[in-house]
Write a protein that binds this DNA or RNA. Structure first.
Lengths: 386, 386
DNA sequence: TTAGTTTGTCTATCCAATAAACTAAGTTTT
DNA sequence: AAAACTTAGTTTATTGGATAGACAAACTAA
């Protein structure tokens, strides 16, 4: 209820975070360099660095180059001081990864899912997680958290409110997992996870404001503003797949009409392709490769509608980049041209000026790695508040 | 470049802001009450309050009620310690107001604009502002700032990049005004100003997350998230009037097709009404009053398209409220029914659950008062950083 | 009157950041 | 190689916040 007040501990937390941050960004770094870069006094830096060393987060790695004086002692972040687990829960698969605190990848596992029953899925999740935990080297902070990306609507407390493709409703996955493992668990939408993954390790590295458009069966979107995930006001993210782009178009299961994902998703592509005798995206990609004109035309259509929705997104959020991810990113070659032209035609010039249109670099691993990043950033946030 | 580091001055600024905030919210308040509410030590509160009193921001207003002990000395914020000017610059009018630091209204002026030439408008603005300044009582902080709402796209430095209805391009209004008056000037879009006005003094009082939809000649939107204005990443706000709701609809001057404002603005209403012999909104409102069925049908159509766009907004931002303002709010009686039904039909249930659909309470004064609030919050922000 | 309560101030203490002096350990100049 | 200079990092004394607890002032209730 009361706003947290300021005291000396707050100062120390702030400055410790600044020091740690600068080591994370610029390692290897000496105390003197940190002092210069942050503006903190040398003595202050020395004292805070000592705390970080005592806390097993920073290591002295030996002398550095001198430029005419005493050699500096270089400092590095100990990435392996803790490990996080990232999980991408799909409709018919689970992908999991063990990451160190800098996102370095350890063991990676995939398994297919025969059922989407919540209890069954929970057991499968535990199997994967157990194996990943077992593969982690022992370290001061152990497993610092588990992050999970799910294909559905997630509320602020980590409950999956609604996941049509899993046929889930109100599954309190975060509570279940954290009860079972006794460590912090973060659950979020697959698109949010993907956005974070691409922002940290993929096409969006170091871009502050981006929109990740996950084009799979449906369309999900993840929004990163000022380098952090934007969650809707009640904790769930904007479902831009359900922006209506054809006010009187096809009715959607969400109740609205003409939703974007009715025109630009894999599902919509497959519906059109069915009469031509194609059954999945892989077949269509193959046919496109072979230059089948009717298939190329199909992809152009998807590209156009992707562009229509992306132009809307650009006009509303004016991001630095839009990244197209998930399964449809494989069709880059066949959709990109039409997509770019449509966006250029339709987006407002002011907003268009600086926006980059990119495709996911991490491919199928965006969401999984993003989920791991959620767990890692949870760990750092907890550090800051203690 | 370097993140501001933490020091004792920062603590003091934080805690002073907390104390001031609690007086602003709960006055009259005693030192003891502030200590209890904020969690700050009594001595700390005493010391900070003394600084505020020395700074002419707070006043001891005499003894309060005792509950069996020494009577408390009650404290109040001195609203008249400074004054701000709020301006709503319209296409054919200027509205201006003098406000105290709590938004209390002093002198109010309106004048009509015969030309939209930037130099001419600047002179007219100065005339109004001069009169308002002259009407301000003398006070410790004087005129703390000028806020202006304009019907166009404004960048982070307060330049009007593009205002089609004023026929303006790249007018550095903020610089011009602040050079002329030597006090801080804030320029923003009319819809952003309106959003702030309604959030502080109108239908959105104390609502943390709201979208203000300004329906006039065009459609503008102002977004308030966590009680403060959300600016797009480059400093200008989302132009949701140019969300495309009919992918292959009418071409819009912005380059896109089927923009929302082509279907739900005053302009679009008038275009349809022209063949029926109506020339402005006032005539149409009169005809609706008389029950003319073809006019009622027109308004229902506007209501439906407003609902279509608002459903999109609700799905993306999941706000606590949507407020319809500007000229079309006068047509509430004729559009509200269809609008509500359309939103209920189209918005995703989860998001619909808590959203309120409201109409502006401040009428034509939303933007003007919001502009004043921009200036006031500028003053408080400067206080916090010194 | 007397006891108890509440308000607000005063005092001693704590703690983080800092400047400046200082030690340590190098490089460059002569 | 000695002297002069540079740079890194630590030590010391000081500053300026917040705080707990003691305290005086001012009130109520019995």
């Amino acid at each position: 209820m009361t706003t947290p007040t300021g005291d000396q501990a707050l100062i120390k937390r702030i400055n410790t975070a600044i020091v740690l941050e600068s080591i994370l960004r610029g390692a290897p770094l000496s105390r003197a360099q940190i002092s210069e870069r942050t503006g903190l006094n040398k003595a202050t830096v020395s004292s805070l660095v000592q705390d970080l060393i005592d806390g097993s987060l920073v290591l002295e790695t030996g002398p550095g180059e001198s430029s005419g004086g005493r050699k500096p002692v270089m400092l590095e972040f100990i990435a392996s001081a803790g490990h996080a687990i990232g999980i991408d829960l799909g409709v018919n698969y689970i992908r999991g990864v063990l990451m160190d605190l800098q996102g370095g990848i350890g063991k990676e596992l995939t398994s297919s899912l025969r059922s989407t029953d919540p209890d069954f899925v929970f057991k499968e999740l535990c199997t994967i997680i157990d194996k990943l935990i077992a593969s982690a080297p022992s370290c001061p902070y152990g497993i610092v958290g588990i992050g999970v990306g799910v294909p559905g609507l997630v509320d602020g407390s980590g409950s999956v409110l609604f996941a049509p493709n899993l046929k889930w409703r109100d599954v309190p996955l975060e509570r279940q997992l954290s009860d079972h493992y006794g460590i912090p668990v973060t659950i979020d939408n697959e698109a949010n996870a993907g956005a974070l993954g691409e922002q940290k390790h993929g096409a969006g590295r170091s871009i502050a404001n981006l929109v990740y458009v996950s084009v799979g069966i449906g369309i999900g979107t993840g929004l990163i503003l000022h380098k952090s995930l934007y969650k809707g006001t009640s904790g769930f993210s904007g479902e831009m797949g359900h922006l209506s782009v054809e006010a009187h178009g096809k009715p959607c299961s969400c109740g609205n009409r003409g939703c974007w994902e009715m025109y630009a998703s894999e599902q919509s592509l497959l519906e059109k392709a069915e009469t031509m005798g194609y059954r999945d995206l892989e077949q269509l990609l193959l046919a496109a490769e072979q230059g089948k004109p009717e298939v190329l035309e199909l992809f152009r259509g998807i590209g156009e509608y992707l562009g229509i929705g992306i132009a809307n997104i650009v006009n509303v959020f004016n991001p630095d980049a839009v990244i197209i991810g998930n399964r449809m990113s494989q069709a880059r070659e066949w959709v990109e041209g039409e997509l770019r032209q449509t966006v250029i035609k339709r987006a407002i010039g002011f907003h268009l000026r600086n926006v980059q249109l990119l495709f996911a670099e991490l491919g199928e691993r965006s969401a999984m790695m993003g989920a791991g990043e959620m767990a890692i950033s949870g760990f750092f946030n907890r550090l800051k508040s203690t």
